[in-house]
Write a protein that binds this DNA or RNA. Sequence first.
DNA 1: CGCTTTCCATAACGAGCGGTATATAATGTA
DNA 2: TACATTATATACCGCTCGTTATGGAAAGCG
Lengths: 203, 203
Amino acid sequence: MESDIATPVKGRPREFCVDKALAEALHVFWAKGYDGASMADLTEAMGITKPSLYAAFGNKEALFHKALDLYESEKLEYTRAALQQPTARRVAEYYLRGGVDVHASEGEPQGCMGLMSSLACSPEAESIKADVIRRRASSQRALVERFEKAKQDGDLPAHIDAEGLTSFLYAILQGITVQAGAGATRAELEKLVDTSLALWPSA
Amino acid sequence: MESDIATPVKGRPREFCVDKALAEALHVFWAKGYDGASMADLTEAMGITKPSLYAAFGNKEALFHKALDLYESEKLEYTRAALQQPTARRVAEYYLRGGVDVHASEGEPQGCMGLMSSLACSPEAESIKADVIRRRASSQRALVERFEKAKQDGDLPAHIDAEGLTSFLYAILQGITVQAGAGATRAELEKLVDTSLALWPSA
DNA sequence: CGCTTTCCATAACGAGCGGTATATAATGTA
DNA sequence: TACATTATATACCGCTCGTTATGGAAAGCG
């Protein structure tokens, strides 16, 4: 198979940047959710017409999955960086403060794109929901392993259940995004993080 | 103004029970969310036609608010009972175990009706969202006062911030409903509750 | 009985949805 | 210049949505 990079195309060149358009689509999906974002909303924000969107991205569902890829690789980068922190407590702190940064930052939509889309319930959004749940499960599995290692490292008490602690940390994170979506201020969310970390088990 | 109870009406009597129909509507809204529940879904489950629904309940939005009233008075009764528990820890335990009971019970929809409706994002659901947020804020205020009292009673350390602890408890509860909606088993949720209670501050 | 009132059933409304057919404009190739 | 190829622009499709107008059925009242 030949190289796909910088292949000169034959027909009329497209007049918009695909990456820019996808970033705009992400912003719309993030703010309004999968069902709430209409094709009219998307095309207006992306600055293109519907046929261009369909030619470039397939359909609304395919566009959403690509937007979700972008969301994970850019906005949820902190969840991967968190795993490399030296202690379980530092992992948790990185997770929670990163969650507040991303989901309660000014100029960005409030709340979590994955969370609101996983709760969307139009009949055609079932595959969306399944996708989000699958990604979340994969992310949670990595966290369980990280906490198992922390127990071996001795920075978590041996009696702690790694799966329970992972569910616990995710619950706090989900609470942060829910409360952010409900209009909680950044100060309130930081107080929530401080309280959670104060209760975190010591070695 | 005269009494409204048992007034004999003049016209043709309705052929369905309003309370029964409302309970069915609640079930549909709970399972599918405000946007996801169509009038066709509702009328089919309620066993009535659309004109009957409009005559009895007004419109879809009014029906939802009445269903939400029923949900709060029946399904969220445990949140009021929780406040009367003798210690802060018992309050928290009542809250969390009650949350698992209601939102992960077999035969009922998985997840929290208020949470999924507060994240619904159709343009006409803005007042729904505002209503849910207002009810939640009122409920949270009562919990803050309960924890302030607990500090005076001495069953919470004085250095604990009551608002932060309330946000924390609500975050766990929201995490429970999110994870229940994503298909978590009851055993997993109970492990989450056990972990959370193990970290709860001691006096 | 006729009259009024209220409810039920059918069918339709306008609006918005995701998706597309058609025609035209802009490029590379020959 | 002529052709093939691809992108854009406009208008439209079938469908579902929440909501309502219309006609008939069932009750109390005189």
